[in-house]
Design a protein around this nucleic acid. Sequence first.
DNA 1: CTCGTAGTTTGACAGCCACCGTAGTACGGT
DNA 2: ACCGTACTACGGTGGCTGTCAAACTACGAG
Lengths: 126, 126
Amino acid sequence: MSYHDPVTLDHDQDCPGLLPEPPAAELELACVLHALADPMRLRIVSELAGAGGDELNCLAFELPVTKSTMTHHFRVLREAGLIRQHRRGTSKMNTLRADDLAARFPGLLDAVLAAAPPCPKAVAAP
Amino acid sequence: MSYHDPVTLDHDQDCPGLLPEPPAAELELACVLHALADPMRLRIVSELAGAGGDELNCLAFELPVTKSTMTHHFRVLREAGLIRQHRRGTSKMNTLRADDLAARFPGLLDAVLAAAPPCPKAVAAP
DNA sequence: CTCGTAGTTTGACAGCCACCGTAGTACGGT
DNA sequence: ACCGTACTACGGTGGCTGTCAAACTACGAG
């Protein structure tokens, strides 16, 4: 659950404002499972999966916690390698790293999403 | 992650010494994920899976922790619904509830086991 | 520049938890 | 009954963590 800042120059040019994330090959199972074991974070991941690859800013998730707690959760998800975040204006846009996760742990994300509780409400587009 | 002691009379007669466990239909994803997120517990589950349904007593797992910590880990796994335990003489025998888990969360256990680090050593028969 | 909004940092809090050591229980063999 | 072995209960420790409030930063519109 620790990694060096892997943002390369190439990456900076392709996606300005990208926040640091662990490379797919370095994702750790215990870290991913731990991140998914929190109901708030599982809900974030479920809603991102339901958005079908669309980017959602943090406000798109109407979670019953404060903004600072949401910041914490998004950070845990990013550092575990579950989500990708980049800055766009005043917003942080989030996507699920579904392809990376499937490549690293085949079937895991699908099984977790299938097992996750249904989302309380549909995600509003930002 | 809480349940009432569900041991029924029928169950008592079929398997004396069975310790309380949650019914398969009541397994909670967050609880299961949390139990699997600890490397020691993941290793226990992996070794039980590798034993192909054989019962293993607690000593069969040469984990780098004390016996009292192992007791704690086995308890977490049992209460999360991942393992079944029953007393046999002075030993506690453990099996993986693979069928229950597959029924409740299809594909999850397989994906986790496929992703888990390889066991450091083969499990000695008790 | 000001303002509003999205998001972050910081510190605090209370509960959780992996781990340990110690003393104890449960069981079976002698 | 005693003994050895498998396992547990209990208390303690230090670190972790979800959560919050308050102050702050980053950004873009006007």
